[in-house]
Write a protein that binds this DNA or RNA. Structure first.
Length: 428
DNA sequence: TCTGGGGTCCTAGGACCC
DNA sequence: TCTGGGGTCCTAGGACCC
């Protein structure tokens, strides 16, 4: 028996909950948060889920039902969500030092083992405090492994009699059965639709039969990942908690365009903007990159005239300098851009990172240290101005004239917490 | 008319080396 | 009919996650 226990904290319907903090009229009302261009639903309140609206539902297909049911609709406001996320995690640190941030709305915790009763009351206290401090409701799952904790969290969220906190000590314990019966095999973390379908071939169609399945068969037929899932379900740890958030290994920036672009210049401006945004994230984590992918594609829902392509540019000397990255990205775009197509989406993906200043100098390139320093200083001031005065205060010329805005966000809520001019006003 | 945007890890196969 | 064998690195693609 180990001397610690794993927990996962999951913010309930996170984006919707963020909207509700600043707009109480949304409470108890079915609410949807939309993707870029207000295209489809990316977050749903419980009331909206009860109406049968699936994740990713296109708005145009559901418009009538939304009106019938008085559904509130908001454009995504990622600046607000990111800030709220940081508030939740900062608050969690008051309870637990070892936190692994897993996504914008989830974190794993390592907690000392105490009596089961104490652990549950402590967790309930944590849940209530987070709500009081941030306005965000959370659910907590507790277990010996990450996979079991995720499953416990699902039970905490789905079955209200648990009040948002649930612990699985031993999954074969009879007390859990009434919940496991109502969960599907792909409710397990690590098992998606494809594996779930393939498992049925072996008559493994529910969680109890997966638990009884032969571990070696799973390994042989489905690979090491499913074997690990099986082990984790049997309380054997395969995935430790890692509080030191490692930096990203790849950075992607891409958008679907509201209207299709046909001209090279239109797509080029978008690609320049994506490169700018991706290189900003790159600098924020202190990395330089040596591989730039550019890709573009026509409408994936239109069968005729379909075209998509990508191109990889390898840099001899890794860099985080936006002008160099942009220049290369645009050269790549030139190679794959074909006139006569209607482009609906493009993007830039950076990978193969090194820590800035640590990468091996390529002996064949004539690197100029003074030039490097100049570029670094320029990028620093550039990032600083944009973070103080708002994104887009300083731009590069190639993304200056933007004919059609990439984003259409008619229904975005104010950035209450990060922009002074959008702070909420109470009374007068 | 209208359909998201990010990430992770594993594996199989090819190129290349000795 | 026969066509070494083992190792490493790289890449593309698949599966999963939120």
């Amino acid at each position: 028996m180990s001397s610690d226990i794993y927990g996962i904290v999951d913010c309930n319907n996170f984006y919707v909950s963020c909207e509700r903090v600043f707009d109480p009229t949304l409470r108890n009302r079915p609410t949807a948060v939309l993707s870029n261009n207000d295209g489809c639903v990316i977050a749903r309140s419980n009331e909206l889920k009860a109406l049968g609206v699936p994740m990713g539902a296109p708005l145009f297909e559901w418009k009538d039902r939304f009106i019938e049911n008085n559904v509130a609709v908001r454009s995504a406001n990622f600046t607000l969500y990111q800030d709220m996320s940081e508030r939740v995690f900062r608050s969690l640190h008051e309870f637990c030092q070892e936190i692994e941030i897993y996504s914008i709305d989830e974190a794993f915790l390592r907690l000392p083992t105490t009596s089961p009763h104490k652990l549950l009351s402590k967790s309930t206290e944590m849940k209530q405090t987070i709500y009081r401090w941030t306005g965000i409701p959370i659910s907590i799952g507790l277990a010996n492994t990450k996979t079991l904790a995720k499953l416990a969290n699902k039970i905490a969220k789905k079955f209200i009699d648990n009040d948002g906190v649930y612990q699985i000590d031993d999954i074969t314990d009879y007390r859990h059965i009434k919940y496991l019966e109502h969960l599907d095999i792909d409710d397990i973390w690590g098992i998606g639709g494809r594996i779930a379908r393939r498992l049925k071939i072996f008559d493994i169609a529910d969680i109890p039969s997966l638990l009884q399945a032969d571990r070696h068969l799973l390994r042989q037929e489905y690979g090491v990942m499913l074997e690990r899932t099986w082990l984790e379900l049997h309380s054997i740890r395969c995935y430790p908690i890692n509080p030191h958030r490692s930096s990203k290994k790849g950075i992607l920036c891409s958008r679907t365009f509201k209207k299709a672009y046909t001209e090279y210049n239109q797509v080029a401006q978008a690609v320049a903007r994506f490169t700018d945004s991706a290189s900003r994230s790159l600098r924020a984590q202190g990395s330089v990159t040596s591989r730039i992918w550019v890709f573009l594609t026509t409408d994936r829902f239109t069968p005729e005239g379909r075209y998509s392509n990508s191109h990889l540019i390898k840099l001899q000397t890794p860099t985080d300098y936006t002008p160099i990255l942009t220049k290369n990205a645009l050269e790549g775009l030139k190679i794959i851009f074909r006139p006569g197509h209607k482009y609906k989406r493009a993007g830039v993906f950076l990978e193969n990172f090194y820590n800035k200043g640590e990468y091996q100098q390529n002996i064949f390139t004539t690197s100029n240290p003074q030039e490097d320093i100049k570029q670094t200083i320029l990028m620093k001031s550039f990032d600083k101005l944009n973070s103080i005065w708002g994104k887009g205060t300083v731009k590069f010329a190639n993304q200056m004239v933007f004919l059609n805005p990439i984003k259409e966000q008619a229904l975005r809520s104010p950035r209450y917490t990060t922009r002074w001019e959008e702070i909420p006003v109470i009374g007068n």
